[in-house]
Simulated scan of single mutants.
Amino acid sequence: MNNYPLLNLFWTMLWFFLWIVWLFLLFKVITDIFRSDDLGGWGKGGWLIVTLLLPYLGVLLYVIVRGASMGKRSAQEAQEREAAFKAYVRNAAGTASPEPKRGSHVDDLTKLAELKDRGALTEEEYQRAKTKLLV
């Protein structure tokens, strides 16, 4: 019943964990090969073949030879994603430019409310104009 000592279990878990980490690194390297703009088609094909035919050695060589540019590409992609997200949030919030836009819906609604408060518009006219602005 005690054929598998606890130390062997720890070694098995360690090797399994290292294998999972290597798989993540392999996928990261393969995606970096395809994402790299400074490699041509033959270069990408060569690195892909080396990485797939000699998996451990190929990944290790790629990280040694192209690790610095791999990190730069990852950082640049993260900055581009962050800039795109910020632009999306500004666009969705209606503040695409730092200064307020002239003639925006908020300004028009404010003017309509002021006209209604002064009595220049009836409630029915106000609702029609507001509906036109919001549609």
Rank of each mutant, 00 (worst) to 15 (best):
V21Q: 09
H105V: 13
A93R: 15
L14I: 11
A68Y: 01
E80Q: 12
K72Y: 04
F27P: 00
V29T: 06
L6H: 04
A120R: 11
F85Q: 12
N3Q: 05
P55R: 14
W22F: 12
L9K: 15
K72S: 00
G103D: 06
A68D: 06
G46T: 12
R90I: 06
A120Q: 12
V63W: 00
A96L: 12
E124L: 12
G46V: 09
I64M: 10
A87M: 03
T131A: 15
A78D: 03
S36E: 07
R128W: 00
S74D: 02
G41M: 06
P100F: 04
D37N: 10
D37Y: 08
I49G: 07
F27E: 05
R81T: 04
E125Q: 15
P100W: 03
K132E: 01
E82A: 15
F17I: 13
G119A: 12
W11F: 11
G119E: 03
G71R: 07
T122F: 09
E99P: 01
L7Q: 14
L52M: 14
L7R: 07
E80M: 14
V65L: 14
V21N: 06
M13G: 10
L134N: 08
L18Y: 09
G41L: 02
L60C: 07
D37S: 11
A84T: 05
Q127P: 02
P55A: 08
G41V: 02
V59A: 09
D108P: 04
L6V: 14
